[in-house]
Nucleic acid binder design. Structure first.
Length: 297
DNA sequence: GCGACAG
DNA sequence: ATCTTGTCGC
């Protein structure tokens, strides 16, 4: 029904993408720009957002993009937007943004237009920020295109610029004893690209936090820890849970036998939700043509 | 041929 | 990302 995004892009496309990244990279602000970011208790921070994209098992072209907004510090879901999308680009390490970002940018723009009061003051992104092959990961990309503070949170270390998940690295992880403990990730050039963070007391595997846009690494790490009820920061975790649940419900409606779901009780209803799941695809789902490239001026 | 490989 | 059951612990 929706096949695309297969194979690896031609070298010419990759060069275009690299030029795009190099160009937008100049706009990244890797320091605190908001008052709440320097406040010890983050007072003034009221809404944190999270984005994620989940995939349909046997269809490399279909996915669900989600944007959620949570209250801070309560971390209760205030807004949820899940939408089925058709992926154009394949996954290529180092170019994640060109696969997932167009839909997330659209979601942010829709929120900005329809519910500006719910706009998050910071966005947690599933993936890296400046901890990237060319210093411009998906979190930076989303930050620059939306002008929102963004934090990159990766579940695995991207082995770039000399960083390696080797014995020494694992030793450092062993030294992280309590939630909030972290150590710097130094690139070959001597620059700190991010920090490995033990997100809470009962989590052994660290998170790799890096600056996306308009926030310092120190504030990003501190806020990430502050948003972790479990290993994954609640905004991203909720976006993940809800996008996967949306796919599951969509599959059911279309007659696909329900897989032995372990849990889906986590998704309670938010105060605001653009649309629900209906068998009839929303009429205006494609009213706006899909952009092949990620732009927004 | 071998190792790497965010999601 | 997704494929997957039980299991150990609070």
């Amino acid at each position: 029904m929706a096949r695309k995004a297969a194979g690896k892009p031609p070298e010419e496309i990759l060069l275009d993408w690299k030029r795009e990244q190099a160009s937008l990279k100049a706009r990244v602000v890797d320091r605190d720009t908001e008052a709440w970011q320097r406040d010890p208790a983050f007072s003034g921070l009221q809404r944190v957002g999270g984005v994620d994209v989940s995939f349909v098992k046997d269809d490399s072209g279909s996915a669900c993009a989600s944007l959620v907004v949570l209250s801070y510090p309560e971390l209760e879901v205030l807004y949820e937007d899940c939408r089925m999308v058709t992926l154009t680009a394949p996954y290529v390490s180092g170019f994640l943004a060109f696969r997932e970002l167009p839909f997330l940018v659209d979601a942010v723009q829709q929120l900005r237009q329809r519910e500006p009061r719910l706009m998050p003051q910071v966005l947690f992104v599933d993936g890296n920020g400046v901890l990237h092959h060319r210093g411009f990961g998906v979190a930076c990309h989303l930050g620059v295109l939306t002008d929102l503070p963004c934090i990159g949170v990766a579940k695995k270390l991207l082995q770039v610029d000399g960083l390696e998940n080797n014995a020494l690295h694992k030793e450092k992880i062993q030294l992280l004893k309590a939630g909030g403990d972290s150590f710097p990730l130094m690139g070959g050039s001597g620059t700190v690209l991010g920090r490995a963070l033990r997100s809470h007391d009962h989590s052994t595997k660290p998170l790799y936090v890096s600056v996306g846009h308009k926030i310092s690494l120190e504030a990003a790490v501190r806020l990430t820890h502050s948003c972790c009820k479990f290993r994954i920061p609640e905004p991203v975790r909720q976006a993940d849970i809800r996008s996967r649940d949306y796919i599951r419900r969509t599959q059911e409606v279309q007659g696909v036998p329900a897989p032995p779901s372990g849990r889906s009780k986590e998704a309670q209803r938010p105060k605001a939700c653009p649309q629900g799941v209906s068998e009839e695809p929303a009429e205006n789902q494609n009213s706006e043509e899909q952009r092949p490239e990620t732009r927004m001026l």
